[in-house]
Design a binder for these strands. Sequence first.
DNA 1: CGCTAACGTTAGCGTCAACTGACAGATCAA
DNA 2: TTGATCTGTCAGTTGACGCTAACGTTAGCG
Lengths: 117, 117
Amino acid sequence: MIEDESATDDAFRALAEPRRRAILRLVATDELAAGEIAAAFDVTRTAISQHLTVLREAGLVNERRAGTRRLYRARPEGLAGLRRFLDEMWSDALDVGRRLVEADRAAGEPGLESDVA
Amino acid sequence: MIEDESATDDAFRALAEPRRRAILRLVATDELAAGEIAAAFDVTRTAISQHLTVLREAGLVNERRAGTRRLYRARPEGLAGLRRFLDEMWSDALDVGRRLVEADRAAGEPGLESDVA
DNA sequence: CGCTAACGTTAGCGTCAACTGACAGATCAA
DNA sequence: TTGATCTGTCAGTTGACGCTAACGTTAGCG
């Protein structure tokens, strides 16, 4: 198994929302309470709470309870799937780039090329 | 300037759709025509065409016209913003992780632990 | 010229997602 | 217990998104 493909899907969908990325940036370096996070935005605490739920279910943040407060912190392992996808895309596309350069150079030498017009 | 923040936003939104990620994977190694891409899925060509438009406007694919056909290929530079975000999040969160390990070790030496039941 | 093939574009529809407002649960102090 | 604080959850609305079907456009062939 590849570590659950749906997990990567959840992470992508969660990160598609700009506000959720901003939240993730906030809790990347510091552990913050839901209220503190909500205070940083112009939307309702309800909205932030829902965003935090999405982030938690996507495995992107950790939740820890302390009294009546709930403290959140970024969870780097949740980004593993994203990194895999990006690295794969990146290297593959760059390989093609190199291959095209070679084909371009080869096309200028003898008289044999097969595909494309 | 930071290379336009909205560009990164477009890329994230574009990649939130599983089908668009699949398309991107297809054109990562080979340059394909819209029809060939559409043939790989169970949806209408119209839907694929719209997906390709989104990917192109997000800077994730390149379009090249050859006769009546339009050939698409992945554009690795479009992923630059994503990579920056991921690398930043990753390193920041891991730094915090190390800091926490140190604090944990310092707290674990004498005979005092406080939280959790 | 007409005809066909390969695409993109528009209008319309159904569905999902983000937001607000009102309510409920849990914790701590007096 | 009563009250105040911090927070999640439940309807309900609105806007965005993905899909299909019909149409318009461009390139190549006879």
